[in-house]
Design a protein around this nucleic acid. Structure first.
Length: 418
RNA sequence: GUGAGUGUAGCUCAACGGUUAGAGCGCUGGACUGUGGCUCCAGGUGUUGGGGGUUCGAGUCCCCUCACUCACCCCA
């Protein structure tokens, strides 16, 4: 084979594409019921945007970005995530002058240079949603509720909703200090990764998978114990709304998010059937990011859901709906073939999916073809039908058949589809 | 970036180091010459991922390389 797709990227084609379309439809239906409108930012942005938002020392920025300089020497990056571009878009287009909340969703490919594995790719599609301008935890609960409804619409089961609060710029430093203090005499027992984490990002020690580290952190202070009164109140109210909305959740104080911009509420929707990368959606508040980007102080919250992870769950739970033509026109002989082509064209003009046979195949093989396509009806036209002025129809599902005159065809097929 | 596993027909997979690398599915045609699904018959395809080595002989063993898969790191 001369050319193959690049590592970690994939063609999406039938029948998988039907699952993708199903998800895309659910996004539009559910998200619009919550008043989220679509945003289509570009796929490339100035590199600086990602460095400043995601964080200079994160893996995404340090080693995973597709970055290049264009012909004018600008530093450009293929977006590795969607929040930073959405924030840039919000500020640049002065959307903060509109009444809050401003709620948006977006859908499209993201790019990270990583080793591919189950649920992880170099080009991957995310569904993102962002709500700007509201601090009220009510909107946090609406976001979770929207996700729950979205997954329910898709028929996904066995999902876990994990929530946490990582505090604000006031209380988080205190927690970080307490954590460092607690771990300082345990460094020697850590795995090599956690020794590194202790220096770079001690919060990450909390979700290490190595047994020794899990043991050592048993009695570690919990972030929820260090929340300032405002954050505490925000979190408690958020949780009370989740209860009100009947959303089963688990507080996971060890859940830390990888991106620097998060504040207060964070959450993840996970599923055991996904393999090691078990999050189908994740997000949180980023109350300082708009301000950091030069906009007015604007609280905000958002999430991203991984399209490939969602479609893989749908695939493994037996989603196999393949669209089928309404009519297959089988013809014998040249006059009939011409007649069939005209009928096909007319029905298609009414939006009916019609397939025709090709290259003079036998009636038998055309019938077989119609069957393979799962066509609902077959129209049979041959010399007899041309002469009698009546063509034959057959419904494949129950083998019923009959005759109709040529000028009845349109009512016969079009009426049921109006 | 680190580690492990797998590469054979369009797909899923067989083949103790030993003849001409097979089967199922799918596809096309026929039996049924104008009626699909079931059955039967017929038909075609391989640089065994690529390169090198060991051997009388390599799909099989060894080395290199590439790709894919899974896991770590990290993350949707």
């Amino acid at each position: 084979m001369k050319y193959t797709a690049l590592k970690g990227v994939h063609d999406i084609l039938p029948p998988d594409i039907f699952i993708w379309q199903k998800v895309e439809k659910a996004v539009k239906d559910i998200f619009s019921a919550y008043g989220f409108q679509e945003l289509r930012p570009p796929i490339i942005e100035a590199t600086e945007i990602f460095i400043r938002s995601i964080g200079e020392t994160t893996d995404i920025v340090e080693k995973e970005m597709y970055t290049f300089t264009d012909k004018a020497g600008r530093h450009i990056t293929l977006r590795p995530e969607g929040t930073a571009p959405a924030v840039r878009c919000y500020i640049e287009n002065h959307l903060y002058t509109l009444p809050p909340p401003q709620k948006f969703f977006y859908y499209g490919p993201m790019f990270r240079y990583e080793r591919p594995q189950a649920g992880r790719f170099r080009q991957f599609f995310q569904i993102g949603a962002e709500a700007f301008g509201v601090e009220d935890p009510k909107i946090d609960s609406e976001i979770i509720s929207m996700l729950k409804l979205f997954f329910e619409r898709l028929g996904l089961k066995n999902l876990n909703f994990e929530v946490n609060s990582i505090g604000c710029e006031k209380c988080r430093p205190d927690y970080k200090k307490a954590l460092l203090n607690f771990f300082s005499d345990k460094i020697n027992g850590f795995c090599p990764d956690c020794k590194r984490r202790f220096e770079q990002n001690p919060l990450r020690i909390l979700d290490c998978k190595v047994d020794e580290c899990i043991q050592l952190r048993q009695r570690a202070p919990r972030v929820t114990e260090f929340l300032c009164s405002n954050c505490r109140k925000h979190f408690d109210t958020f949780l009370s709304f989740l209860k009100l909305l009947n959303i089963p959740y688990v507080i996971n104080p060890n859940m830390v998010r990888g991106l620097d911009y998060y504040t207060r509420t964070t959450f993840e929707v996970t599923c055991e059937h996904l393999g090691s990368q078990n999050a189908v959606a994740a997000g949180g508040r980023y109350d300082k990011l708009v301000e950091d980007f030069g906009g007015p102080p604007t609280p905000a919250i958002g999430f991203a859901a991984g399209m490939e992870r969602i479609t893989s769950l749908l695939k493994s739970s037996g989603n196999r709906e393949i669209p089928a033509p309404a009519v297959f026109i089988a013809t014998i002989g040249s006059p009939a073939e011409k007649e069939g082509l005209v009928i096909a064209s007319t029905l298609r003009g009414k939006g009916i999916w019609v397939e025709v046979g090709y290259s003079g195949h036998s009636l038998k093989s055309q019938m077989r073809k119609a069957d393979r396509l799962s066509a609902e009806y077959v129209l049979i036209i041959g010399d007899d039908e041309i002469n009698s002025g009546k063509l034959k129809w057959k419904r494949l599902s129950d083998r019923t058949q009959g005759e109709i005159s040529f000028n009845e065809v349109y009512n016969f097929f079009i009426a049921p589809y109006l």
